[in-house]
Computed example of a mutant assay.
Amino acid sequence: MSDQPRFRKIFGNVATREQMFALFNRDQKAPPEDRISGRAYVSEWFEIEASEYHFMLDILPPLFLRTGMFGMSECKAGYITSVFFEITIRGQRRWFTGFCDLSTPQSPDAMREAIIAYESQLSDSMTREEKLEAIWAGTHPDFRGIAGSADPSAWPAEHRGKRTILVNVGSHGTILKLLEDLTDEEIEEKLRTGKPSTGA
């Protein structure tokens, strides 16, 4: 499809099984039409453990199976399904999954190439904005929100409508903070650990 979104990594760490399934369902708050059409998911990808790759391969007979790649026979929406990859990058074997639009036959190969290109770059090549987007995408909906959506008076007018995220500040507990106000240290910690914003 000519308007297919660019491939994008949505989680900064290697996902556990629990995190993998949470990421599969992370867009429950997306508009219904985007969930039904699959636009809420298509082209998103993240890294998983080898055990999760083989676990998913054993759940159902794959829709297709090629060397280092298979597609789930159960679609997420329309022609959108999860595709799993085993890829060797810089001599290290790694595993990934992402949502591909199979109405575009070359979509799985294009995603594989995008993953290789992205992961072959230096980790510090991401811009601050790209890091914030990855953190937002990988954070459970319970730990993120929109400033002023519940209580407009709790936020200054200039911040209402901005994205917020729960942040663990150590001995001071957990606070709600604007996503755009995360410090460089908070950003790197979230990308490194891949844990929910509560620090749990």
Rank of each mutant, 00 (worst) to 15 (best):
F46M: 06
V42Y: 03
K76E: 08
G170K: 05
R192P: 01
P31R: 06
Q28Y: 12
T16D: 13
R90W: 07
E86F: 02
K177V: 03
I175D: 05
S51V: 11
G78K: 04
E52N: 15
V14S: 11
R39C: 03
N168Q: 06
W95C: 01
R39G: 00
L60M: 11
R160P: 02
E52R: 09
S2I: 13
V169L: 09
I165N: 01
T16Q: 09
A137M: 09
P105M: 06
G161E: 05
L178K: 08
A157N: 10
T183A: 05
E189Q: 11
E52K: 08
S37K: 07
N13P: 05
I187E: 02
T164L: 06
N168I: 01
E189F: 08
I10G: 02
I175H: 08
I48V: 14
T81M: 05
E188D: 13
E186Q: 15
D101M: 02
R93G: 00
I115Q: 07
M1G: 12
S2V: 11
I48A: 03
G78H: 04
G98E: 03
Q4L: 13
L176R: 13
P32E: 14
E180R: 10
K131C: 14
A110V: 10
E185I: 08
D34V: 06
P32F: 11
A50G: 02
M20I: 01
R94A: 05
E18F: 09
R128P: 00
R17K: 13
L166E: 08
A30P: 03
D142W: 08
I10Q: 00
T88A: 12
S125D: 10
G71I: 03
S171R: 13
A200M: 13
S149M: 06
L23V: 05
K190G: 11
L132A: 02
I87W: 04
F70T: 02
I187K: 06
M126F: 12
G38F: 05
N25F: 09
E188P: 01
